[in-house]
């Protein structure tokens, strides 16, 4: 037995989930600030990213220390590598949340002329649930949940694509919406990238549990193809997010 090693591993665990909680909270607050057009809150949240960056470096240093001192192998090695990679993804999500805060203006997205191709609030909810599910998959070693997150990513990509392709037509009809729509498009892009980060975390969970690297090979994932975090009917533009798997 290696009690010191496991103590270090538990410490990595705690730091990682603390970081995940802070990033999720930050993202949630940033999205609310954006939707409300609350620029003051958005500015405050940008400062939060400095703390997330500091935590990222501290956790990375801890991982490097564990690698150097204990030279873990097999499942232990995969765990430390996974912590390193998830840590980097969380920091990236923090940066993307800062981008969303940067898009916040006093003009609320709700002021846009209908119809919009996607219910924006539902899209943000779906991305946040994807992120939450990827962290839950990591903490509960749940490969199936991780696979569900991966399958959901393509639907978020579709939603972002729908926003982008709607842009020229919308500003032609409502030129006064251009600034708000551009901001919305920027946030949509950030959300799409956050979904990618959540997908990367889910891929890391599969690597951690099985040793398989499934990046670039999602076709090999077993199970049904229907994404879990999706709009109920992609054609009509309504975006009702399914209940997350309990």
């Amino acid at each position: 037995m290696k009690p010191h090693f496991y103590k270090e591993i538990r410490a990595l665990d705690r730091r990682l989930y603390q970081q995940a909680v802070e990033v999720e909270e930050m993202l949630g607050c940033v999205v609310i600030a954006f939707l409300k057009g609350d620029t003051q809150s958005a500015a405050r949240l940008i400062e939060k990213d400095t703390e997330i960056d500091r935590n990222e470096i501290a956790l990375e240093e801890e991982c490097l220390k564990v690698l150097a001192l204990y030279q873990p192998v097999a499942g232990d090695l995969r765990y430390v590598i996974t912590v390193l990679k998830v840590n980097a993804e969380l920091e990236r999500i923090g940066d993307l949340a800062v981008d969303i805060a940067g898009f916040t203006t006093e003009s609320k997205p709700a002021s846009l002329q209908p119809p919009l191709p996607v219910d924006f609030e539902s899209m943000t909810g779906a991305v946040r649930r994807m992120l939450d599910a990827s962290i839950k998959a990591l903490s509960s070693h749940n490969v199936q949940l991780a696979a569900d997150v991966i399958k959901s990513d393509c639907r978020i990509d579709e939603l972002h694509e729908r926003f982008s392709s709607h842009f020229p037509e919308h500003v032609r009809q409502f030129p006064e919406d251009i600034a708000v729509f551009q901001a919305l498009l920027g946030v949509s892009r950030s959300l799409e990238r956050i979904a990618d980060c959540a997908t990367n975390i889910a891929e890391d969970v599969i690597y951690l549990e099985s040793g398989r690297i499934v990046r670039h090979a999602h076709g090999c994932l077993s199970g049904e193809e229907t994404p879990v975090f999706q709009p109920s009917d992609p054609e009509d533009g309504a975006f009702s997010v399914q209940d997350e798997q309990k």
Partner: peptide, 19 residues
């Protein structure tokens, strides 16, 4: 493979120092 993803649980336990 043995040191990154062994297929047998006993191997994993041994090389990770669990016994």
């Amino acid at each position: 493979r043995i040191f990154t993803n062994p297929s047998n649980k006993k191997t994993e336990e041994y090389i990770t120092g669990r016994f």
